[in-house]
């Protein structure tokens, strides 16, 4: 499954439809952690839909590492009026910051 999914993920994460990008974030969970962190880190840097960012952050809270903390902060700053995203970024930040 991880191998079969991997080749489709870059295109799905750049799909024009935000619902496709959102669901693709969940598929990234099947990937080895380093690859997952890279895929979703790239997405998070430029994503304009708050819901897609939230889906990516949920997966990154497990798959990502502390190196993604600045990216999470930048994402929260892009959506200053979205309290859920601020909450999701805070929780993810706590988890990533506490990683071994």
């Amino acid at each position: 499954m991880p191998e079969a999914t991997a080749r489709h993920l870059p295109a799905l994460l750049h799909d024009a439809d935000p619902d496709v990008r959102l669901l693709a974030c969940e598929l990234v969970r099947t990937q080895p952690p380093i690859g997952a962190g890279q895929l979703l880190g790239d997405l998070l840097a430029n994503e304009r839909e708050a819901n897609v960012c939230a889906a990516a952050i949920e997966v990154l809270a497990e798959a990502g590492g502390p190196e993604l903390l600045p990216l999470l902060a930048q994402c929260a700053a892009r959506f200053p009026d979205d309290p859920f995203l601020a909450f999701a970024v805070r929780i993810a930040g706590e988890r990533l910051g506490a990683q071994r």
Binding site: M1, P2, E26, R29, T30, P32, P33, I34, E58, A61, E62, A63, G64, G65, R95, Q99, R100
Partner: peptide, 22 residues
């Protein structure tokens, strides 16, 4: 399983990120 996440179920566990799996 690869689509399952304990973080969504319970806060009891630590998440461990190894090179091959979470």
């Amino acid at each position: 399983g690869h689509t399952e996440s304990m973080s969504r179920i319970s806060p009891l566990f630590d998440v461990c990120r190894f090179s091959d799996a979470i």
